[in-house]
């Protein structure tokens, strides 16, 4: 089960979210100047923000390459349960049988509870306080990170118990 790509899928999501959080510094900085003409789009940033944006873009490309290689390797080893990178349905759902469907449902319920509380709370904070754009983006990414973390921890707990 440890080798099951669906089990580690939330960890990939979390890694992508962390890179997006760094990328957001470059994109949302007030020091970023975006000029758009009919034929071109130029983005000028300050040194630090520009470096972070560039480094995050490189890191994102590297991670997505590793991810696609790992996914291809998994699909080759598991032709009966291939994962499509373009699937709308989250591939981390484990529904091979009724027991696995049951623990997946429990994990999804925990995530739903988390989202139910955090999103309205976050919206309220954003409405009440003049929060910079970067912090709003980080907040949204933090919710997405938390969602994946909760799902992963819950699934891991159940599967660890089953292994004992």
């Amino acid at each position: 089960m440890k080798q099951d790509f669906r089990m580690t899928y939330p960890l990939w999501n979390m890694a992508f979210i962390l890179i997006l959080a760094v990328m957001a510094v470059g994109f949302t900085s007030s020091l970023v100047n975006v000029t758009k003409t009919d034929s071109s789009l130029s983005i000028e940033t300050q040194a630090v923000e520009g470096f972070l944006l560039f480094a995050a873009l490189i890191a994102y490309l590297v991670l997505i390459t590793i991810y696609l290689i790992a996914l291809q390797s998994y699909n080759r080893k598991n032709p009966g349960k291939k994962i499509s990178p373009f699937s709308m349905r989250p591939p981390e759902y484990m529904e091979q049988d009724e027991g696995m469907t049951f623990i997946t449902r429990k994990a999804v319920q925990k995530v739903y509870t988390f989202i139910t509380w955090t999103l309205p709370f976050f919206a309220l904070i954003v409405m009440l306080f003049p929060i910079p754009r970067l912090f709003i983006v980080w907040g949204i990414l933090a919710v997405a990170f938390g969602q994946n973390l909760i799902y992963y921890m819950e699934m891991r707990r159940h599967l660890k118990e089953a292994a004992e």
């Binding site: 049988d97 027991g99 696995m100 159940h158 292994a163």
Partner: peptide, 17 residues
């Protein structure tokens, strides 16, 4: 026709089949 994990969940009383 179920996974080993499902048998474990049943044995532990975590899941009612």
């Amino acid at each position: 026709d179920v996974t080993r994990q499902t048998i474990a969940f049943i044995e532990k009383g975590e899941f009612s089949p």
